[in-house]
């Protein structure tokens, strides 16, 4: 292709996006609407060649790794034992004091819920004072206020607000999570998630003209041409027809009736 211009570059970028991933001939079919192709024979040829190749690839069986390839590779690397040990979770011991720390965390959650008048955390009864055990409906059953019982309503609301505000402020002040390099599949997904269909972009001029569409946002002038004689006449006759109408021999131009 000789010195690709901007249109060629745009088209090639769209083509390269459409070719990403597994063979999908229908993506290339959509691309054939691209307006650049109307005036660029080299790009048309390129698309045709790619379409033929995609069609061929789409007919081939999905490539699969031999079933024992992974194990053989690992054996060659001499790491199979280490990996097995790492992946054998049953064999892993729980860190010392883990259960206690989890229980303490649950207690703290429970205390916060009580503070906010919420009963959403399922807490083992044994972790709480007996007077504070929830009943079967999940409500706090203590008749009198206790250390973890529900606070009077206005205070509870204020406390809920304060907690939410504090959470919002803390969340806002937290440093952003460290960025991780996305893997190839994620990159491909990110590239195409918000990417408009090239065929849609090629047709955008038609799509964005509300006058042409009779949907809720459209209700357009030309979409209702049949009911509007002036619009229908505009649509039906082009300039050369108007010129010919000037030569109509039957021209009363408004004979009185």
């Amino acid at each position: 292709m000789n010195a690709p211009n901007e249109g060629c570059r745009d088209f090639l970028a769209a083509l390269s996006r459409a070719l990403e991933g597994r063979p999908q001939p229908e993506r290339l079919t959509r691309l054939s609407w691209h307006e650049h192709l109307l005036g660029c024979a080299p790009c048309r040829d390129l698309l045709e060649r790619e379409e033929a190749l995609e069609d061929l690839l789409a007919t081939l069986p999905e490539p699969k790794l031999p079933p024992d390839l992974a194990r053989r590779v690992l054996l060659r690397l001499g790491v199979d034992a280490g990996l097995d040990a790492l992946l054998d979770l049953d064999a892993a011991e729980a860190p010392a004091g883990l259960a206690g720390r989890v229980l303490a965390g649950v207690r703290a959650e429970r205390a916060l819920d009580a503070l906010l008048d919420l009963d959403t955390v399922d807490v083992p009864r044994d972790s709480l004072p007996r007077a504070c055990w929830p009943d079967r409906g999940g409500r706090h059953r203590a008749a009198a206020p206790c250390a973890c019982g529900p606070a009077p309503r206005p205070v509870a609301l204020a406390a809920r607000g304060a907690a939410a505000a504090a959470a919002a402020l803390v969340w806002a002040a937290l440093p952003p999570a460290p960025e991780r390099e996305p893997d190839a599949a994620e990159v491909a997904r990110l590239d195409t998630a918000d990417e408009p269909d090239p065929a849609l972009l090629a047709a955008l001029e038609v799509l964005e003209r509300n006058e042409l569409w009779d949907d809720a946002a459209g209700g357009g002038l030309l979409a209702q041409a049949d009911a509007d004689l002036e619009v229908l006449l505009f649509e039906t006759f082009v300039d050369e027809d108007e010129l010919l109408l000037d030569f109509q021999t039957d021209d009363d131009a408004g004979t009185p009736r």
Partner: peptide, 13 residues
């Protein structure tokens, strides 16, 4: 557009 339509209408037999 309407001007064009009216002009055409006036030219019809």
């Amino acid at each position: 557009l309407r001007e064009r339509g009216q002009r055409l209408e006036a030219k019809l037999p």
